[in-house]
């Protein structure tokens, strides 16, 4: 279970929530309310303070910060990549960071989605989001924080990803989503949190 008690964001808002494995939480709120701040704070990418921040009854302080971040993966709205990197290089980046070698098999099931030639720079925004989301899902994190990750995708791709994400959550993972799209997740427990 992910437990957040009195997480104080940089904009002064205080967040309290609990999410169980296998659940999806939609974060809602007006523009500038602090949705992205919340996700970044949860992944401990930016400063915040809290009374309790724990996962599976283990306080965040038990984990070195890099390990906490590899449990909780945050995907920013803009897809960031090195100017000349190819799709394959982009997919490989996190695994090379962690020095994993046999990562290519991870993308085999979604070959139809990753099978794009050329450099990331030449892809459309929707294609980039597709690749970025697949890369985030392929990591062995327990919690995925998606920040407007579907904005540029077409309807069909979006539906395909909702199904993939549903399967991913069924493995006992937790998904927090900031999105302006109404997302229908089959047979899964979803809830809403308003900032």
């Amino acid at each position: 279970m992910l437990k957040v008690k009195n997480l104080k964001l940089l904009n002064g808002k205080v967040i309290n929530l609990e999410v169980n494995p296998g659940e999806i939480l939609f974060i809602k709120g007006a523009n500038g309310a602090g949705k992205s701040l919340f996700l970044k704070s949860l992944a401990r990418l930016i400063p915040s303070s809290w009374d309790e921040l724990s996962f599976n009854n283990k306080s965040m302080t038990h984990y070195p910060i890099e390990m906490w971040r590899s449990k909780i993966t945050y995907l920013p709205p803009e897809v960031c990549f090195s100017d000349e990197s190819s799709v394959d290089e982009y997919l490989a980046e996190p695994f090379l960071l962690k020095r994993y070698k046999n990562f290519k098999t991870k993308f085999e099931p979604q070959k139809n989605l990753t099978n794009l030639a050329g450099t990331m720079k030449l892809l459309s925004s929707g294609q980039r989001q597709r690749i970025a989301l697949l890369r985030a899902m392929s990591l062995d994190s327990d919690i995925l924080l998606l920040d407007e990750s579907f904005g540029h995708m077409d309807q069909a791709t979006r539906e395909e990803f909702f199904n993939l994400l549903a399967k991913w959550v069924e493995k006992g993972k937790i998904l927090l989503i900031v999105s302006h799209f109404e997302i229908g997740m089959r047979n899964l427990k979803t809830s809403e949190f308003i900032i």
């Binding site: 990418l45 890099e66 971040r69 590899s70 945050y74 995907l75 803009e78 960031c80 996190p94 990591l139």
Partner: peptide, 18 residues
């Protein structure tokens, strides 16, 4: 201008140096 690039790598488990 591009701190999201750093945030992306950090959220992938990269150290500050990486």
């Amino acid at each position: 201008e591009k701190n999201n690039e750093v945030l992306t790598l950090m959220s992938l488990g990269g150290t500050i140096e990486e």
